[in-house]
Write a protein that binds this DNA or RNA. Structure first.
Lengths: 139, 139
DNA sequence: CCCTTATTGATAGTTTTTTTCAATAAGAAG
DNA sequence: CTTCTTATTGAAAAAAACTATCAATAAGGG
């Protein structure tokens, strides 16, 4: 039983075929996947899968912190599997590939600075970088 | 003629009533506004305004960097006026109020670090913080 | 292996966004 | 100030994205 399956079960949710498929696809993908894409891919294996289930599954996964909704350049939503504790991605504008990176001291310093300046108490952050991956540079 | 109007004109676009209204509303608002909200508010003054125009206007403004699409906690889109050069916001999770902050040295350091680590060439970033504004803390 | 109940898929509905096209109005030119 | 060109608009309709409802199914505890 993989880590996320245990997490699911421990939270009182069932490990089902559709959920397994969605997670498999997300874990295997470098690029963020849209609900629609997930639907089409998963459907290949689970013939009578409903799109609704994808939405529900993503919502559940997100609420458990297994998955992260990211924002593509055109404003559409995509989902990426998240390794525990890290929630930041660099996304390649050309090929869509993504790499997760840890929010290190720089980010902590930045947040502390902003709390001091604005008086806001910061509880969550969304940091996403867009650029070109090594492969797509110079092409 | 305000700054953004000049920018519009210089880019070869016309300064029209709907565009003036949308920008006015965005400039006057502390909180991100959705296309729908903008539509309803602007309609009060411009009686036969079409929702389509809002979408087109926001798209145009965004392409000119006058406006920034931000992502609310529930995943919906909102738009905020952007002062030139700055593109970061802290948004209050309780009242929706927002404050823009400059991406300072910390952020530059962070980005340089990530470029070194991942090999990506970073061209754009989206940093958004969620928290509680001074007013809403402790309530 | 059975039973309870979370989960699913089909259907239908709502909301959001895009497309198309004739009518309108901004702003350059006279 | 008036005329002309053409970007922009609004209405209507369509497509896409997402949500709600509910009977049928299947996960997993007993």
């Amino acid at each position: 039983m993989s880590a996320w399956e245990e997490l699911l079960a421990q939270a009182g949710h069932r490990v089902t075929e559709p959920r397994r498929l969605v997670m498999q696809l997300l874990l295997a993908s470098e690029t963020p996947l849209s609900p629609q894409t997930l639907f089409e891919s998963a459907r290949v294996q689970h013939h009578n899968l409903g799109l609704v289930t994808i939405y529900r599954t993503l919502e559940l996964f997100e609420s458990l912190g297994l998955v992260c909704r990211v924002h593509l350049k055109d404003g559409c939503h995509g989902y990426l599997a998240v390794s525990p504790g890290h929630h930041h991605f660099v996304i390649c504008e050309r090929c869509g590939g993504s790499v997760e990176f840890p929010g290190g001291d720089d980010l902590r310093a930045l947040i502390a600075d902003i709390e001091a300046r604005t008086g806001y108490r910061i509880e969550e952050h969304l940091l996403q970088l867009l650029g070109l991956c090594p492969n797509c540079q110079g092409k």
